[in-house]
């Protein structure tokens, strides 16, 4: 090859092609989505996160949770994510609107956490119940079954007198997360073989002065501190758990066909981005390529 110019042009050209093709154009397509809302401008989803939840996200990123836990539910035709009760529907770009950094994950040495907060919530307090869902729908029934042991999201372990069959805090409640982070193998037969690292550095072991702290961990066996001592979460640990409890993609999205047959929000959102995303193939189209409207035959 002679002459530098063709080489330079080629080197720039090929890379510009890839840069525009894989980052710039997709960014035009899904890089400016708006939250979805109903006609009255209420029922907005997703909402920006702040305070402890936002700080919890940075704790999650700093300690590399992403190397073992994903935060994305894949569609039922491609994976068993929904069968595993990791979510009622597949994840869509809109779910991650305000996430920074976005923590989709690339490996699953641990279960998916996209809906871990919702799964810890008591059944009655579900933010977006699906009233018109057929009762016999298997995924819906399954989701309910997964939630039934959870009774309380109350941070105080004393308040969570729960139907957890193994004793201890209700599954995926705040108290459960704290105990699980401190002693991952102490929870139940499910976690006994877990190889999740213990995050004891997020907790403080201190001498009880006066009353036992309300947020002290209820530890048993080898993990329990000696008498007169207690283990309490640091601010980072509280934020991390607040962040985990906020993980919830159960709100229906117009562009996603819910596997459980849950009703999508009535009416169409006024945002132009929403209609762009509803184009077939644009984002998260169902396998049959059905437009979003076809996903709601059972609603209303």
């Amino acid at each position: 090859m002679k002459g530098l110019l063709p080489l330079f042009l080629g080197v720039f050209g090929t890379f510009a092609f890839s840069w525009v093709g894989l980052t710039v154009i997709p960014n035009l397509q899904i890089g400016a989505l708006n939250p979805q809302m109903d006609e009255e401008g209420t029922d907005i989803y997703p909402m920006p996160q702040s305070g402890m939840v936002a700080h919890g996200r940075s704790v999650y990123a700093a300690n590399g949770c992403i190397y073992c836990h994903s935060q994305q539910v894949r569609p039922d035709y491609a994976s068993s994510d929904i069968e595993r009760k990791w979510g009622d529907r597949r994840s869509a770009p809109r779910d991650y609107l305000f996430d920074r950094p976005v923590l989709l994950g690339r490996e699953r040495m641990g279960p998916d956490l996209a809906n871990i907060g919702k799964r810890g919530m008591p059944h009655e307090e579900q933010p977006s119940p699906a009233p018109s869902a057929p009762a016999g729908s298997p995924a819906q029934a399954g989701a309910a079954a997964a939630q039934s042991p959870a009774a309380s999201a109350n941070p105080s372990p004393a308040a969570s007198a729960s139907p957890n069959p193994n004793g201890g805090p209700a599954i995926y409640s705040e108290a459960w997360h704290h105990k699980h982070l401190y002693a991952p193998r102490s929870m139940s037969p499910d976690t006994r073989d877990s190889n999740m690292p213990a995050y004891q550095f997020l907790y403080e072991k201190r001498r009880i002065t006066g009353e036992r702290s309300a947020d002290a961990l209820q530890l048993t066996g080898a993990d329990a501190p000696s008498a007169g001592w207690e283990v309490v979460p640091t601010y980072d640990a509280k934020c991390l758990v607040a962040y985990l409890m906020s993980q919830d993609q159960s709100h229906s999205l117009k562009e996603v066909k819910s596997a459980g047959g849950a009703a999508p929000a009535a009416g169409s959102a006024p945002s132009p981005a929403a209609s762009a995303a509803a184009q077939p193939g644009a984002a998260a189209a169902s396998p049959a390529g059905s437009p979003a409207a076809a996903a709601s035959p059972k609603s209303k």
């Binding site: 899904i30 890089g31 400016a32 989505l33 609107l97 996430d99 920074r100 976005v102």
Partner: peptide, 14 residues
Amino acid sequence: VPVQGVMQAAVSWW
């Protein structure tokens, strides 16, 4: 000039 949502993952994989 951070890109929105999932585009961050696309950029980091790219």
